[in-house]
Nucleic acid binder design. Structure first.
Lengths: 292, 292
DNA sequence: CTGAAAGCGCTTACAG
DNA sequence: CTGAAAGCGCTTACAG
């Protein structure tokens, strides 16, 4: 009556563990947590439990993961992949172990994946700035070895190109994907003979760094400088001024990714294995018509 | 060479699974995520993996959990316990299964637990308001069947008592622990013949609701009304005005709780089994000297 | 000290 | 259709 089957025994005899894993680089980023929330809530309607793997300490490298995971701890894995750490997972994937990549559809064409329209999002953001009369638009990017940063840069180039403008080298800064990187970018741009009138930042944290650095130099946002971010973190709406940004549907990314993974784990052919979700431009207070 | 032992087989033969679980009511609350971050990062330095259980859908009730978990999925469990759902865990605990409660040391005296100085935090917040000259101080509480809300209320009473003041019934409102509850409390208080000049809210979300409702009525914060919250959510520092609040060390709660759990799981006698962490009053912009 | 066997608690293919 | 047996991949107590 109060019988509870032993999961380890079931796992051993059936060759399935009833666990599904998610591997994240860190839990310190708000958007990672939103993805996990999407995963966890969708998972509740499935018989699988969720194992949370983190890689924030360097010791747990890809080999360790390849082992732990390929060894049969989980039946399938969601991966937010840091660049250059794909080999172990490629191997797992080849042996038929279900792996779904989140937000990295570029590098590993053989993997099922869920990502967002990075290029189109950046395109929309840039169009918004162009529509407001801005011509000198700079890009405060994160590291360009991340595929999605490349895609966002392409989106900016595309919009500028359609307007007959080129993106000059001095108006692109690739640095850390956080406030410090934004500060560095702002400093570089503001030292230019002709500083930009608007900045597209590859994520919201960079935007906040730009805003802080601009404020320090006495620049008023958006009057003196328009800023668009990317992500729509919870802080974006609360910042002063509230940040215009490209929203990523983090929760839906997580939800979609588990659904795809569960299909693979249970042997159902998924309807699509490379899914791209729409971003959305959220216009708030940090952008305005160019007045000078 | 590339041998990877099978966790299910190890688990079956050794009677240990190498997994440790955390059961949370929801992932929608920022502070829950901070606790998880503390747990996950501390866990990295251990051989255990982390299973994330959520109860946000009502279907997964305590019995289901008692079964899944007692059945041997994990070697130990961290529990953020909703009130009145303790029975299954009490049972597990009695049978020697390691369970550590987070933030609920009141109800279940037999459990190891990690909590914060709720009463003292509220005491400090209230003292701060008294020091600013406030005499009519109201409490916008969450549900009083949560032990920590009771403790916070006691802290307020204690500070008022020391100042020779009593907390009158009409100055206590217990409602939902969110913005809506804060709005309702504000409405109740502002309709009073003698409205309060300061409000202690049992959490930050309630504070935000109070602030919004006050703003709607044309009250300026802190000039017309001082507000203190509890939690120090990320939004607290970004709110307008920035919220004075009692900080809970969420990250450290998580970290401390896993350490305690790992001690129990590995049979080490923990140094302390009922741990209370210090809160800290963070004074920002939402409180000021009473001027009328 | 080494190595073969039993056992952990299930599932499933198979004999009756 | 029912029930006893084999097997999943380890660990560990035990025989040699």
């Amino acid at each position: 009556m109060r019988y509870v089957p032993n999961p380890a025994a079931i796992g051993l005899s059936r060759g399935k563990t009833g666990l599904v894993g998610i591997l994240v680089p860190t839990l310190a980023w708000a958007w990672v947590l939103e993805v996990i929330r999407g995963v966890a809530e969708r998972r509740e309607r499935s018989p699988y439990e969720l194992v949370l793997f983190t890689t924030s300490s360097q010791e747990r490298n890809e080999e360790l993961f390849g082992r732990t995971l390929a060894g049969g701890l989980t039946d399938g894995l969601l991966v937010m992949l840091p660049p250059g750490t794909a080999e172990a997972f490629t191997d797992m994937q080849r042996r038929g172990f279900p792996v779904v990549l989140i937000d990295d559809r570029g590098y590993h064409l053989e993997f099922p994946s869920v990502s967002v329209t990075n290029q189109h999002g950046a395109y929309q953001a840039t169009r918004h700035l162009l529509d407001l009369g801005h011509q000198r638009i700079a890009v405060a990017s994160g590291p360009l070895d991340y595929r999605y940063n490349q895609e966002r840069l392409h989106g900016v180039r595309q919009a500028l190109g359609e307007a007959g403008l080129a993106l000059r080298d001095e108006l692109v800064h690739a640095g850390e994907p956080n406030e410090a990187g934004g500060g560095a970018a702002a400093q570089a741009f503001m030292g230019l003979p002709e500083p930009p009138t608007a900045i597209f930042a590859a994520n919201d944290l960079i935007s906040f760094g730009v805003m802080a650095a601009a404020a320090e130099r006495g620049l008023r946002i958006p009057r003196d400088l328009s800023i668009v971010g990317f992500d729509d973190l919870p802080q974006a709406a609360l910042a002063r001024p509230a940040l215009t940004t490209v929203r990523q549907p983090m929760y839906r990314i997580g939800l979609t990714a588990v659904e795809l993974l569960l299909d693979l784990v249970e042997g159902r052919p998924p309807s699509r294995s490379r899914i791209e979700l729409e971003t959305e431009l959220v216009i708030r207070e940090s952008t305005m018509r160019r007045e000078f």
